[in-house]
Simulated assay, not measured.
Amino acid sequence: MNDWTTSHDRVLAQRDAEGWTFLIEAARDLRTTGAIAPSGRALARALTEPVRARAPRPLAVLEAGAGTGAVTRALIPDLPRASRLDIVEANPRFAARLRRLVTTHPDLAARPAQVNVHQTYVEQLDTDQRYDVIVSGLPLTNFTPAQVERIMARYLELLHPGGTLTYFAYLGTRRARALTASRAEARRHAAVDEIMATYQRTCATGRWTVWANVPPAYVWHLRRPPVRAGHPEAHSVEAHSVEARSVEARR
């Protein structure tokens, strides 16, 4: 058996193990896992595009809801030198897997201190750091409107003015839930969609459709507005949060 075959078999085995891990965790709690399979390569690349766009200057990057590390593995090789990556994952089994990834990834052999895994919810992340890019893998459409409000407010708080948030949503989930879920569940999903539409109207810089993912997904890039002269930094964050809360209040 040659070296290429051995390496190829190892990659396939790793992907199979990752898929099974994801499936097991989805069976435990689909609400917080969000899918039954990790993000595909095309989706990971679309989510991490703002990191490549800002290279080669050093960046502070946050990945929230990293799961088994499918997006993390796409992200690490693109980190400019002297950058910082904080990875947030609440699931303890996923977090343990991410720590192993960080300690064994060849691109991090000479700079392990630049990447840290935090087992927590992003709303509870204890840090004074502000980020140039936030990559969100959280299944926002699986949460309640109030939870989405807290997550989005925290994202904007953690972003530098002018920083970019990237996140994804699977195609057709609202229609599928309208046909198969209870009325309360369909209303919850619709309310979350309206909250996110508010942020899209005010902050979106682009949307891409990733057909190669299973299932296909939209990727959104949102930019936190720069702080305007004469306005405190918190004003821009609160303005988006108040508008989104008003959407929820009308439900």
Rank of each mutant, 00 (worst) to 15 (best):
V135Q: 04
A96L: 08
I76Y: 10
R97A: 02
N213W: 12
I87S: 01
A35P: 08
S182H: 09
A153M: 03
A184T: 02
I76Q: 00
I87D: 06
R15C: 13
A64G: 03
R31T: 11
L30K: 06
V237Y: 00
V210Y: 00
E18I: 11
V133D: 01
G19T: 06
A46R: 03
P215R: 05
Q200F: 15
T141P: 05
P145H: 10
A44T: 08
W20Q: 15
S182D: 08
T120V: 14
V192Y: 04
Q119L: 06
T32K: 09
L75K: 05
L158W: 01
V71G: 04
V219A: 08
P56S: 09
P139C: 14
G69C: 07
V122D: 06
Q200I: 15
E194R: 12
L138M: 06
L125A: 06
G67Y: 07
A239L: 03
A96C: 05
R111T: 15
R250W: 14
V117L: 05
R28G: 13
A212N: 11
E233M: 11
V247S: 01
Y199W: 07
D132C: 10
T202K: 15
T209C: 11
E248G: 09
H189W: 00
R93P: 04
P215D: 03
S236K: 13
A181I: 11
P215Y: 00
P80L: 01
R84E: 02
A60Y: 12
V61G: 03
V11P: 02
P226T: 02
A229T: 14
R130W: 10
L30H: 01
A169I: 01
A70Y: 07
R10L: 14
G34C: 10
V135K: 00
R45K: 14
L85K: 02
R224Q: 02
V51L: 07
P145S: 03
Y218L: 05
L75G: 04
E243I: 11
R175V: 08
Q147R: 13
E233I: 09
V88D: 08
R228P: 02
G19L: 06
R183G: 15
R201D: 11
V210Q: 01
V102I: 09
L85I: 00
W220I: 04
V135C: 15
Y199A: 02
G40I: 09
G230Q: 05
L125S: 05
L179W: 04
I76L: 15
L171I: 11
R99P: 06
A217E: 07
A197R: 05
L101E: 02
P56K: 03
V71I: 14
A95R: 01
T198G: 15
S39E: 08
R174S: 10
A27W: 13
D107L: 12
Y131H: 10
S236R: 11
D128R: 11
P232D: 11
E25M: 15
G69P: 10
D29A: 01
V247T: 05
F143L: 15
L108F: 04
R99Y: 10
T205L: 13
P226V: 09
Q200E: 15
F22N: 05
A35W: 07
Y155N: 07
Q119H: 02
T141K: 01
R174V: 12
Y170F: 08
P56A: 07
